[in-house]
Design a protein around this nucleic acid. Sequence first.
RNA 1: GCCUACGUAGCUCAGUCGGUAGAGCACGUCUUUGGUAAAGACGAGGUCACGGGUUCAAGUCCCGUCGUAGGCUCCA
Length: 661
Amino acid sequence: MAARERGHWLASRHRGLEHAPGTGRRAHVSDAAPQGRHPARRYPPWWFQSVAPRHAMTRRIVTEASPMPVTPQDDPYYRIRHSLAHVMAQAVLELFPEGKIAIGPPIENGFYYDFDLPRPLTPDDLTAIEAGMRRIIAKDVPFIYREVSPDEARALFRDQPYKLELIDGLAQGLDEYGETHHGDTVISTYRQDTFEDLCRGPHVERTGQLDPEAFKLTGIAGAYWRGNEKNPQLQRIYGTGWANKAELDHYLFQLEEARRRDHRRLGKELGLFHFSDDIGPGLPLFTPRGEIIRHEMERFVRELQTKYGYSHVWTGNVVKESLYKKSGHYDAYRENMFPPMVESEDLVFRLKPMNCPSHMTLYKEMGIHSYRDLPLRFAEFATLYRYEDSGALHGLTRVRALTQDDCHIFCRPDQIEAEFGLALNLIREVLATYKFGDYRVDLSLRGASGKYIADDEAWDLAEGALRSALDHYGVQYREAPGEAAIYGPKADFIARDVLGREWQLSTIQVDFIQPRRLGLEYIGEDNQPHTPVVLHRAVTGTTERFLGVLIEHFAGAFPLWLAPVQAVIIPITDKQQEYAEQVRRRLAEAGLRVEIDTSRDRMQGKIRRAQLQKIPYMLIIGAKEQEADAVAVRMRSGEDLGAIPVAAFVERALQEVRSRA
RNA sequence: GCCUACGUAGCUCAGUCGGUAGAGCACGUCUUUGGUAAAGACGAGGUCACGGGUUCAAGUCCCGUCGUAGGCUCCA
């Protein structure tokens, strides 16, 4: 059903930009059924994969063609987790002897197994299953390997339809995920105790080698057989498994830390935004404090864009539906647009789900363009509206009203490399300011499939330009064949936050197709009309989503320039009220966001509240400070700077704001 | 959209076998005027998401709707 499958030229054109860059949430290594065609990823046990699969899934917006399986070579926990999956399957079958088993691989942090069971599982079942697993472990039975012929395998699993399907695939040289398998296919099984499973291993030698205190079943979820929504939905049980209890505890602690940083929780605690049933799902409301952060974020990108030679345009929020019929979005994107506003049969409007048709229309309306006028860089911070599936909504990171820091660069083919480099620099500066020091770049290229627009010359030109720009700026990148947009290659910037979770933030895409389709032109040196190239580019992606990421990245403790309240004045007694107001006015006039805590609490209470609100500076004012025209500065870190003259504090704070430190 | 669970005061949560609703924080009033993470007392605050149903009686049981959470799918 997806346009991409129909091979429409627009189908993946917006994968990134028109779709909030980075909202793309593709399968993550730990969750979806492995597809087995990605290179193995190596990681130490305490690296960022230590975040729970469930969290990782919602947080890691990494663009992967398909999830990468954990493989025995690169994961010391493979045997433990794979063995736990088998033990769990045995425990489940002991409870449901008629249950059907599907697949159960090890994943980051643990394992899962998919079942087709006569009734839905409940959390109580998990407890019973865990108990069953411990009994099996206590038996200390061996894992026994054997190879079988396809016919033997079919006989062995005659009551297991999912296994039979796997066996048929194996017999045809496919692996267990239906992918082409390299080398000879050997059908093998592992048996422990009463449970024998189709499996290539490896496993631990005996169940007794599994620590009964080092695993935990973490959740029940629906999952489609082989990840295809047309297939029956199975019940998946997730578990986490480690070498010992200390490791499990460490992992659970990290989960707790991730929960503590959850932007939905912090957004509420810090009073930044709300969702309301009266407004609608996926439509966030920003409080005065939340709006300040949005404003500062946009102001920062706007300032930089201006410095880099971008101009800003405004194309509104409502567009005639007919434009999207011309651009092709109507067919490819209709499902994700809010329903039409019908004035008459010939006059139908839509809320704008992406900027590019509007920007390209503006380009045309502005008259005939000379090659000398290019590049034209149209940036915009308009809010777009997309009717996301209800099940896809998630806090600020997946919303139905999203504000992109979007830009369309109209240029000549020979300008692509320079424009790419310009965008690259801009992105690097922005990410550095937000303290995303660790990021990587995926260069998404054409794959073998036929979904790409055929124009080898244009593709080669675009790819060459991207490569040389990346090389020129010394950016390391990983090639991702088959990940390009249909109309051209792109570069996705994947940043890692302080917890090591990855987020696709920025993206730069090269589009040779849409400008042609919408009839854009410029007059070349040869006095002939030419079609410009359009670069789609986003820096932080969308304000909403990036704010969600920032909240988690900073755990709500924003740097001074972003902090909604930069300083709170804490008078020790009522006698300092007047002086406090005087100080407040001086700071406000200097451009600082400052409040006085006028509550009747004692100083300790006011400090506590300011700490919990993660306000960068607490300015304590008592008789001594009033005497000295000073404030006693306590920082959010707990550090006490002692009494500082008001003017000196203003200077210090302004410097910190200006440098966006 | 699909699977499962959840929805009780502004927030975080308790509420047993069906018998007219509870705590802490926040909020208000009063007392306390304080030196770096919570002073004390009193008070107000709920159509138990919404709509049906069963029952003498529903926060509690059943059905539907909406929303949220964790996954799956999607992400053009």
